[in-house]
């Protein structure tokens, strides 16, 4: 009864198919490309993402939310084909809630990681066909180990822990180098940064990614358009308000560009 709290199994039993492949690869240009990042700071984990969605050279949308809350303590940042990524997020959101409500306890952090991996594995055919590749970052608070953690995945479902930070998307090569430099030779480790310092750092990183990657959207102050930044701590998830992003950008980023 209750499929042991497995919502994905319940959906499958009702005839739902996830990750069906269209077969061979196509030449069409799908909405894709992005820069997402996560790093540990003093109080937990910061997860950030730019807002641009592109298809080839075309900017499809400039207000995409790529940092999505799955439950009260986990976030998935998405890079890749948005249609598949949003569907994955919806499945995970319902899966974690369904487990909590049926089993009367939270799914463990390890269980959540496994759920992400399983979905990516089910999606391999679509990923290889080029119609559904997703390379997400999953971050959340692990209550067993009393710490916030970061994991990143390849499109086949392989799971890696980002001990200090993780990046994904087309703009990620640029900021991966910066993160390594800052964390190794900067004034302080990323994990020692305050909320304010880490927010400024994230805004600088995404601005740098936008500088070198046309598929990553930068800040547009006139349009009041800023990246999405979420902070995960033992208390839950907090989305950095736009006014604070603006303040931090003016004080710590805009003066240099």
């Amino acid at each position: 009864m209750g499929m042991q709290g497995d919502f994905f199994q319940l959906l499958k039993a009702q005839g739902y198919h996830f990750g069906a492949s269209g077969g061979e690869s196509h030449d069409q240009q799908f909405t894709t490309a992005t820069t997402i990042l996560a790093f540990k700071y003093r109080d937990g984990v910061l997860v950030a993402g730019d807002r641009r969605a592109t298809a080839g050279n075309m900017v499809m949308y400039d207000r995409t939310d790529k940092v999505l809350e799955i439950d009260r303590h986990s976030v998935m940042a998405i890079a890749g084909v948005p249609a598949t990524a949003y569907e994955m997020v919806r499945i995970l959101e319902h899966s974690f809630k369904y487990y909590r409500r049926t089993q009367l306890q939270e799914l463990s952090f390890e269980g959540k990681l496994r759920a992400v991996s399983k979905l990516l594995k089910d999606n391999v055919a679509a990923a290889l066909a080029g119609t559904g590749a997703v390379a997400p970052i999953f971050a959340g608070y692990d209550f067993e180990q009393e710490t916030a953690k970061i994991y990143f995945y390849d499109i086949l479902g392989a799971e890696f822990e980002g001990v200090e930070y993780a990046v994904s998307g087309s703009g990620s090569p640029t900021i991966r180098g910066i993160l390594h430099y800052v964390n190794t030779w900067g004034d302080q480790l990323l994990s020692a940064m305050t909320e304010e310092q880490s927010t400024v750092q994230a805004l600088r990183l995404l601005t740098s990614a936008a500088e070198f990657d046309s598929a990553t959207g930068g800040v547009n102050r006139e349009a009041n358009l800023y990246p999405v930044i979420k902070l995960i701590t033992a208390q839950g998830i907090r989305t950095m308000p736009e006014a604070d992003l603006k303040r931090h950008f003016e004080a710590g980023v805009a003066r240099s560009i």
Binding site: I91, Y98, R101, T102
Partner: peptide, 12 residues
Amino acid sequence: FSLLEMAHVEGF
């Protein structure tokens, strides 16, 4: 369980 299944499948 019936209610949970119905609600979650419908919500999804």
